[in-house]
Design a protein around this nucleic acid. Structure first.
Lengths: 238, 238
DNA sequence: AGACTTTTCTTGTATATACAAGTAGGGAAG
DNA sequence: CTTCCCTACTTGTATATACAAGAAAAGTCT
């Protein structure tokens, strides 16, 4: 499980940018110079720089070089796939997860459509309330295929579902399709969350896939509007 | 302005996927076979496949091959950088833009901070109301550096700002940082939009950059909550 | 038949080379 | 001094080769 060379070069350059060795608006050394100092070929350097570019760390300019972007603004991109726990840890908040429901059941027709399956199979239905700074902010409704994710317990759901799936079961989560909308809160939302007087709720629907392209999880994450924030870095595709 | 080879291969493969020649869950031909049929080297094929993977068209699996993903779900990713007009066109909606304000002014301290500039310079302040199906849904507040974007007129703002910037001025828009939050509507929101009884409004703040990494535009796009939708495809970076 | 090994396919990484395209600066010619 | 061109850099694209790593099928032994 040793990382590839261009990954390690990427990691090192990210480090230099985040700790300030490389400041915003500075030019990186040229690809040839980097190749020499890292004892790698230029193509390997280019793979590392491509990653930096995709993640918003640098901007490449043909004929000129690669300039370091101001990364202070991209505090924490919730874009991508991060678990609630990772996020809470990074922000240094007092976070708590309350598992209010965990049961195995046959897919409803609605779920069957979400999973795009011809026949209904069994899924775990997990309902969790996320508490930050003593306020119940988020309601997560997760549905996971029991055939792929066996042996769920309340304890696992309270700690980290993703850690269990990846580290214990050895599955590899690969990508997700997300949709953000705003809806009216349900009675359940009002009951389980500290909604104050808000009459809307932010809903993030996620379809999550493994590395063999099988969908194993569908999630509806319901957020109190004032505590919701989504940050995105997007390159113009042409 | 002729496209590169791997771009054309990418375009062709996207075409095959979108028109159904290549169906979901099918395996692509192997990289070597593709290289032969496109008369390209394997590395060039790999660049095209990497793009397909990043845009959610395929999933690569080491040792097995590349499987086509179900692209019907990714209807239109609002992620990325698309103008209101492009989006409205694609959805086939009757869209209309009303320019309610256009003036050149000195940066406020707030704007100066958004642009990260040491000294205040002049910016265009553009205020536009977007109407879809006879309802005023979106309020866009744009601020653009007059030094980079000269000669704005009401007519240009009513048609397409991006078309003017890219096609007339010859500038290249490269990337953007976006932040989505939910706020209380201002008096102006209530006045200019058909807000119904909603007491929240979705705010998308964008910092938009050119290909030389200079920021030239800051935008606050304010959406009525029931008409807001954001779709995202995210790969797990590891 | 079943379990194990080997072969043969796939994609992933790393390297070297060549040329194209874009930028910036220096120098010669006017 | 200004204009133009050439040169010396930069990144972008395309190719070829080699080997590693993973998966699946074929083959072999018990």
């Amino acid at each position: 499980m040793t990382k590839s060379k261009f990954q390690m070069i990427y990691d090192e350059l990210v480090g230099h940018i985040e700790n300030g060795d490389l400041k915003a608006n500075e030019l990186l050394p040229s690809e040839n110079e980097l190749a020499e100092s890292f004892k790698a070929s230029r193509e390997t350097i280019r793979k590392a720089l491509k990653l930096l570019s995709e993640h918003g760390y640098i901007q490449k300019m043909q004929g000129k070089g690669s300039v370091v972007l101001d990364v202070t603004k991209i505090n924490f991109p919730i874009s991508g796939l991060v678990s609630f726990r990772e996020l809470a840890d990074k922000m240094g908040k007092r976070a708590k997860t309350d598992v209010v429901g965990l049961e195995e059941q046959l897919m409803t027709p609605d779920m069957q459509e979400q999973f795009q399956m011809k026949e209904a199979t069994n899924v775990w239905s997990v309902k969790r309330v996320r508490e930050i700074d003593r306020e119940r902010i988020i309601l997560d409704n997760d549905y996971l295929l029991t055939s792929l994710v066996p042996g769920l317990t309340v304890d696992i759901c309270a700690r980290s579902l993703y850690a269990y799936i990846e580290q214990v079961l050895g599955l590899t989560i690969s990508f997700a399709k997300k949709e953000i909308t705003v809806e009216r809160p349900t009675e359940e939302d009002k009951e389980l969350l500290d909604l104050k007087e808000y009459d809307t709720i932010v809903v993030v629907k996620s379809h999550v896939y493994l590395d063999d392209a099988t969908m194993f999880q569908y999630t509806e994450s319901r957020h109190r509007p004032d505590k919701f924030r989504f940050v995105d870095f997007a390159r113009r595709t042409r």
